[in-house]
Design a protein around this nucleic acid. Structure first.
Length: 818
RNA sequence: GCGAGAGUGGCGGAAUUGGCAGACGCGCUGGACUUAGAAUCCAGUGGGACUGAUAAUCCCGUGAGGGUUCAAAUCCCUCCUCUCGCACCA
């Protein structure tokens, strides 16, 4: 019997695949295209099995589709710029470039050993000039389109990373990378105008049928669209109006005060002499507060009267104006009309400062004590003059309409989404291709001068200042417009800019004249299946959609969504924790391959849980899968031996043969359905195990195994196995005497005829409880089945009257008695 | 607080178009092989009752409680717990 030596056969077949170039992307063929893509890694260390899960899932999909006769683009690359690599490089006192490229070499080696079917010729590394040149090109295109701009303002600052962060990179007030509490700074920074695309990004989500609902919901929430009205409230005794945004214009008769954000310049314009001191003290106090604490629900609502009153344009009522800590300057207009009767926050504030609470909406039925709790739901308008009696939904329309005709305001839509802050005060990124000229101001670097090279001999310790400031050679430049003395932008781009377009580069990774070829990209994109972690829901996945939509609007591509189908895989935990070096709970794929081989590793990762779920690594679990693989190997070579020894050409199958053949085809059907019906690889592998057990039973029980049957079993079993355990499948295929490569074979179809059974086992229930089972010919009539069923439980139903008999065809009979 | 998802043996998980709950694997128990162990193979394995024991039979059981139905892990109502995301967005 041939011994199973995984490392040996894995090396052998990986070499063969390489030499024959079987995973190279076909350029010309009749086949339909399929673009399978996994989120590329940050090369900031070595891979652990959690990363590998991503690539294995992608590889099963790619190999399956390849066998289903698609022509495949299945590339891999590295998100090589950015803070993690830079921080690691600082810690290890070597240059980020060397550190990054060393890691890439390690990772590439790790992945090759797993037998992932990538087209390695298309590898993309974002920190290389031939890539970031085109990242800079994208910046220029956005700049030309008015979608990249520089503005001063309050920005998120990570004191540990010593750089600004985009809103999407702040999680619960902490830096998404390092967990340090984010503070605020006033800085002039570069932004991409993603807010211009809020509506398009929202609309596109509805078309993405192949995306998980929870990711779409996260994006919708992040974009945060609200429909309402902008209304202007005149200030008494001043030629000034306060503009507010509200989603509840129907509650305007219930306004009892106004509130303005502390940061708003309006505050100091409105404040009266008597109140000035108190207001200034309040502003000073708020300025010192942590802004994320201030913006949390638990924070107490506080404010001060500014000394003035506004006039409600509908009622002409005089209402006091406050500056209040719970008003956000960045959202809406930075000022609100406060309706304590119908808003919890206004209610809390009114209670604290003893302000009136005026109910203007009542529930459709039932009582409501407005002094106990605000009523925030829809209802019927009351105390609202001519609008009394309207439903609040109608009231919204009616009042918006009214203020619009009177010129007090207009319908308005607001979004929570903020523009994407893309400049960083760090070294390891693509330089922003812009020059500052004393005469011409901001001048973009001409396309022909790209790339703006990142200098390598620069001190890059994080100081809060861009390290490129230190390089006179880099900074010094000449204005491309007027030729006078100028200096370069010293800040670099956020790595999320690099990764927001890499899926396009894979199509023409070596083209040095353009970022991609429009025809080729239009052919290969959108990506058919994208696979990665859910942590990118409102980061990379949002940015990529934005960049794609911009390139679409600029006419470079003919699709406006990059990823047709998205799959988010769960994480692998060990000892209850995410794997990390500091926790010391990292499971290395290399160790597992050395111990069990890549095929076992691949299969265990898929078997441990449904792929979208988080799973706990279990050393005993991988042993179990390894046992299965060895049993399968043994069975296969037993079968092969029988085939070789036998001259029997009998195709008349007995009961056992028919039975085994049915189970074979049942497995083929099940695995196809498991893969296509939502990547249920865990149950697909269970199906393989089950069939292997059945094959063992057959080999053990039968005296004269049938050669023809076993030939079919061996061939189809190996084909089905091949996406999961490609190396051993290739070895088995070749031992079957085939002179093709299994990776180039077709996925077998099941034979519906083989699935038919001559005899069925039917469960017999009495009053819904299983009381027996009967074996019947498959074609027995319903009447006869019932008869047999009744007989089989005659003891149980003796002396009882039969009320009803239900028959579920081929499955179950339920006899109802009393 | 809002939004989404999930609660099934000792464990990971199957079954969700209502139709045999616990597939498959781990673990555990017993056995075979062995000087012994490892490996491998075979058998058993939700809880309980009955029985001297076996076979058989019965009862209970999918977070809790109620409902619909011949039949509920699956559908409906009420509640609890956990995970994730957002978090004063007017």
């Amino acid at each position: 019997m041939k011994e199973y030596k995984p490392q040996e056969i894995e090396n052998k077949w990986q070499k063969v695949w390489d030499e024959k170039g079987v995973f190279k992307t076909p350029q010309y063929s009749e086949k339909k295209k399929y673009y399978a893509l996994v989120m590329f890694p940050y090369p900031s260390g070595t891979l652990h099995v959690g990363h590998v899960k991503n690539y294995v899932i992608g590889d099963i999909v790619a190999r399956y589709k390849r066998m289903k006769c698609y022509k495949e683009l299945n590339p891999f690359g590295y998100d090589a710029f950015g803070l993690p690599a830079e921080n690691a490089a600082i810690a290890h006192k070597i240059h980020p470039k060397k550190w990054t490229l060393d890691n890439i070499n390690t990772i590439r080696g790790q992945i090759r050993k797993i037998g992932i079917s990538y087209d390695w010729d298309r590898e993309v590394i974002t920190c290389m000039e031939d890539y970031y040149k085109w990242t800079q090109w994208i910046f220029l295109k956005l700049y030309e389109a008015g979608l990249a701009y520089k503005k001063p303002g309050a920005v998120n600052w990570c004191p540990s990373c010593q750089t600004v962060l985009a809103n999407e990179q702040v999680k619960e007030g902490k830096c998404e990378r390092c967990g340090t509490t984010v503070t605020m700074k006033y800085l002039e920074q570069w932004y991409f105008k993603i807010t211009d695309y809020a509506e398009k990004l929202l609309e596109g989500l509805d078309r993405l049928q192949g995306w998980p609902e929870h990711v779409k919901i996260m994006q919708r929430n992040w974009i945060g669209k609200s429909i309402g009205a902008e209304i202007e409230f005149p200030v008494e005794g001043m030629d000034k109006k306060i503009k507010i945004f509200t989603t509840r214009p129907d509650t305007i008769y219930g306004v009892t005060f106004m509130a303005i954000a502390p940061e708003s310049p309006l505050v100091m314009e409105l404040v009266t002499e008597e109140c000035r001191e108190e207001v200034e003290n309040f502003l000073a106090k708020v300025a010192l507060e942590d802004r994320f604490k201030r913006a949390s629900l638990e924070a107490k609502k506080e404010g001060v009267f500014v000394g003035r009153y506004a006039i409600n344009p509908l009622t002409s009522e005089k209402i006091p104006i406050y500056v209040a800590n719970y008003i956000l300057y960045e959202y809406g207009t930075g000022a609100i009309m406060a309706v304590p009767a119908h808003d919890q926050r206004d209610f809390d504030f009114a209670k604290t400062y003893n302000l009136p609470i005026k109910q203007v909406i009542r529930p459709e039925d039932g009582e409501w004590n407005i002094h106990e709790k605000p009523y925030e739901a829809e209802g019927i308008m009351i105390n609202s003059g001519p609008f009394d009696g309207l439903k609040s939904i109608e009231g919204k329309e009616a009042i918006t309409e009214y203020i619009q005709t009177k010129g007090f305001g207009k319908k308005s839509v607001q979004y929570k989404l903020r523009d994407w802050l893309i400049s960083r005060q760090r070294y390891w990124g693509a330089p922003i291709p812009v020059i500052y000229c004393e005469k011409c101001g901001i001048v973009p670097v001409p396309e022909k001068d790209l790339p703006v090279k990142l200098p390598e001999n620069v001190e890059f310790l994080p100081t809060g200042q861009s390290p490129l400031t230190l390089s006179e050679e880099f900074k010094h430049s000449i204005c491309p417009k007027c030729g006078s003395h100028a200096h370069r932008e010293v800040e670099t781009m956020d790595t999320f800019v690099d990764s927001s377009w890499y899926y396009l580069r894979y199509v023409n990774p070596k083209d040095d004249h353009k970022p991609f070829d429009t025809n080729d990209v239009n052919y290969w994109l959108p990506v058919d299946q994208y696979i990665g972690g859910v942590e990118h829901a409102v980061l990379h996945l949002l940015y990529s959609r934005f960049i794609t939509k911009v390139l679409y609007d600029l006419g470079y591509i003919n699709f406006d969504e990059p990823f047709e189908n998205l799959f988010t895989q769960g994480m692998i935990y060990k000892d209850g924790w995410k794997m990390s070096k500091s926790k010391g709970n990292v499971v290395s794929p290399d160790d597992m391959i050395e111990k069990y081989g890549a095929d076992t590793l691949r299969m265990y990762i898929l078997f441990m849980a449904p792929p979208e779920k988080d799973a706990e690594w279990n050393d005993a679990g991988i042993e179990g899968v390894n046992r299965f693989i060895k049993r399968l190997w043994t069975n296969f070579y037993k079968v092969l031996e029988i085939i070789k020894q036998s001259n029997d050409d009998n195709t008349e199958f007995g009961k056992e043969e028919k039975n085994l053949r049915r189970k074979l085809h049942y497995m083929i059907k099940k695995i196809k359905e498991d893969i296509e019906g939502g990547f249920k690889f865990n149950t697909a592998i269970a199906g393989l195990m089950e069939f292997n057990n059945q094959l063992s039973d057959y080999l053990e029980s039968t005296k004269s195994p049938n050669k023809k049957l076993l030939e079919e079993v061996a061939e189809k079993l190996v084909l089905i196995l091949s996406p999961f355990a490609p190396h051993m499948a290739e070895e088995m295929w070749s031992d079957l005497g085939k002179n093709t490569l299994i990776v180039e074979e077709k996925w077998p179809d099941y034979d519906a005829n083989a699935l038919k059974e001559d005899e069925l086992t039917v469960v017999v229930q009495v009053n819904g409880k299983v009381r027996g089972r009967i074996t019947i010919p498959a074609d027995l009539s319903e009447e006869d089945v019932k008869k047999v069923a009744l007989e089989s439980v005659s003891k149980v139903i003796e002396g009882k009257s039969i009320n009803n008999i239900f028959y579920v065809k081929g499955k179950l009979v339920n006899i109802v008695v009393n």
